[in-house]
Design a protein around this nucleic acid. Structure first.
Lengths: 244, 244
DNA sequence: ATTGGCACAATGGTCCAACCAATTGAGCAG
DNA sequence: CTGCTCAATTGGTTGGACCATTGTGCCAAT
């Protein structure tokens, strides 16, 4: 173990200084996601650094998804920024095959079950009413379109994560979810994807409403299991197609 | 839901082209993590782009942790790179307070348990021998120094994650671990931090070696529970100190 | 009044040439 | 062999120029 006393010696590079200043600026101006940042030229002049340095700093934020740049238009905030953020770039080698998608589901399995437990333990009456509202919306959308709808489904799960009282669940699972859905839409030939998971949303909610953590974990695991089955069916479909 | 048919219209920017070319170069040269890449000037000339563009591309890889740049020395590969890598950069509001540390443990609880299950299901005999080696090293370090050692402890857990066959476990938990250890060293007045978790390392290994997923989950949960207890004790310590 | 096209300014993207700062290694004095 | 100096190498920064895209306002045609 390295002695922490003499380890850091932070030679704060120019970029970091720019980003720190930018964090303060965003805070003082009260900028929210979607708002436009000052132009690179303005930032460069204001911070007394070259535009190249500003660009390197913004490139880093862009790669982290904190900011979006549109040529001819400007640079826009994409997410809330604070000082002391911890950046965790996850990299999955070759992310568009069956195995990689399965890996995201294994993560979700662990986290969704845990979130369901915490949610069942901590939910207030208001929280439960809120979650039920999302559930009803999802069920209506299901019956109206005769199929799962990603949007409302996600809203329901999101309500659970938020009620868990731990913001990390939402952020990590959101990343898994995004990666998964980037591919699940059409490529896999399964038309009624997610159909089988429908009933478990209601049973999961019932356990949460009854403050039953053990039951909530079990229902969450069943729900993920149906998605895994769908994925396996999709993979089998693909294999069959490629053979013909 | 947006119709995916008419969404992308990918105008491949210059940076991406550079990075793709670099992936091919790394592949053709068989470069491994730790190896040195060509200098920025050489890359610029070879790819017929300006050095600025090369730098922007490398800055992006650096932010993703794929590459490390040392002024005066060169640019070094830090991780395997392949085409079709999928990047999921997460940024977490890094709290330095008790609640945030507890949040990281809740994530670890879900993931370590799941990793232990998968490890017990999938471990080959060689894997188990490797894990046991790490365990023995940790136990020796424990007896030699009469206390937990972060380094060897982490190596043991790392071996389990790697055996789980899912690289995401290692990456996510590593981030949680870093966030946690950024504060656990001395600030909390608990001297024998992690001491109570020691015996569960052996029991966890026994379950894995016996290919007992259910038992492995249980032992992993017990292990995390002891860490949570330590953290709670540390928080109580802090409160007591601040009152005097 | 609405629509379509056009010129123009603003903004991010690229390029170049130079210089700064840290690292490395060769050469040399002790 | 040790320790120092020095020069070449390499990433970091700068200023200035130009390109490509976007947004806006004006104007003519409908």
């Amino acid at each position: 173990m390295i002695n922490p006393i003499l380890s850091p010696v932070q030679t704060s590079s120019r970029d970091d200084a720019v980003l720190n200043a930018l964090v303060d600026f965003v805070a003082s101006e009260g900028l929210k996601p979607g708002d436009r940042l000052p132009t690179e030229r303005v930032l460069a002049e204001y911070l007394k650094v070259s535009r190249t340095t500003v660009r390197e700093a913004l490139t880093r934020w862009q790669e982290l998804g904190l900011v979006e740049r549109r040529q001819g238009s400007g640079t826009y905030l994409r997410s809330a920024v604070t000082r002391n953020m911890l950046h965790m770039p996850l990299t999955l080698p070759s992310g568009n095959d069956f195995k990689s998608l399965m890996h995201t589901l294994e993560i979700r399995r662990g986290l969704e079950a845990e979130a369901a437990v915490l949610c069942a333990e901590r939910a207030s009456d208001d929280d439960i009413a809120f979650i039920e509202k999302k559930l009803v919306v999802m069920e209506e959308a299901f019956h109206a379109r005769a199929g799962m709808s990603s949007e409302e489904d996600w809203d329901f799960h999101l309500a659970i994560f938020q009620t868990s009282g731990n913001p990390l669940f939402e952020q990590i699972i959101a990343a898994m979810y995004e990666m998964f859905h980037r591919f699940w839409e059409h490529p896999l030939g399964v038309r009624d994807f997610g159909h089988a998971s429908f009933p478990y949303h209601r049973t999961l909610f019932n356990c949460i409403a009854a403050r039953d953590p053990v039951g909530a974990r079990a229902e969450a695991l069943k729900l993920i299991a149906t998605v895994e089955d769908d994925l396996r069916r999709g993979a089998a479909n693909l294999r069959k197609q490629s053979k013909t």
